[in-house]
Computed example of a mutant assay.
Amino acid sequence: MPKKKNEESQKEQSDRFREAVRKLVAAGELNPTEAEEAFERAMIDIARKSQANS
């Protein structure tokens, strides 16, 4: 059975995401600085692999 399509607007979805992030940060389960550093490392790794395959 296919999943029911989410009918919330982009703004509602964004608001729900921001609230979830706020709760994770408040609970100490998400550190924005660590998340940014991990994202940057991942992007650098992807760029290196892309250049190696060129």
Rank of each mutant, 00 (worst) to 15 (best):
Q10W: 08
Q10E: 11
E36M: 10
E8H: 15
N31F: 00
K5N: 02
K5T: 08
I46G: 07
Q13N: 05
F17W: 08
F39T: 14
K23Y: 00
S54M: 10
N53W: 13
E29H: 13
M43G: 05
G28E: 00
S14G: 12
E37N: 14
Q51V: 09
Q51R: 08
G28Q: 02
K3F: 09
K11G: 07
S54C: 09
V25Y: 00
A42Q: 14
P32M: 01
R22I: 09
L30S: 01
E19V: 08
L24E: 01
N31W: 01
K3N: 06
A38T: 14
E12W: 07
R41S: 05
Q51N: 05
K11N: 08
S9T: 15
F39R: 14
R48I: 14
K3W: 06
S54D: 05
A42S: 14
L30P: 03
E40K: 15
G28I: 00
K5R: 06
D15T: 15
E34R: 15
E34M: 13
R48M: 07
E37D: 15
P32T: 03
K4V: 11
F39G: 13
E12C: 03
K23S: 01
V25R: 05
Q13K: 12
R22Q: 03
A47V: 09
M1G: 12
V25P: 01
N6L: 07
N53V: 12
K4D: 07
Q10M: 09
A52K: 07
R41W: 06
A26L: 04
A20D: 00
I44P: 06
E36L: 11
K11T: 14
A26C: 02
K3C: 02
E40S: 13
A38P: 10
N53H: 13
N6G: 05
K49G: 07
E8R: 15
E7Q: 13
E36T: 14
M1R: 10
M1L: 10
Q51I: 08
A35Q: 15
R18I: 03
R16H: 05
E40F: 15
G28L: 02
S14D: 05
E37H: 15
E12A: 07
S9H: 05
K49Q: 10
K23L: 02
A52L: 02
S14Q: 11
Q51S: 06
S9K: 04
P2N: 09
R16P: 01
I46M: 13
D45I: 11
N6A: 08
E40Y: 15
I46N: 08
Q51H: 06
Q13A: 08
L24K: 05
F17M: 04
A20N: 03
I46H: 11
M43F: 07
N31M: 01
R48S: 07
D15M: 06
N53M: 14
Q10P: 10
K3R: 12
A35S: 11
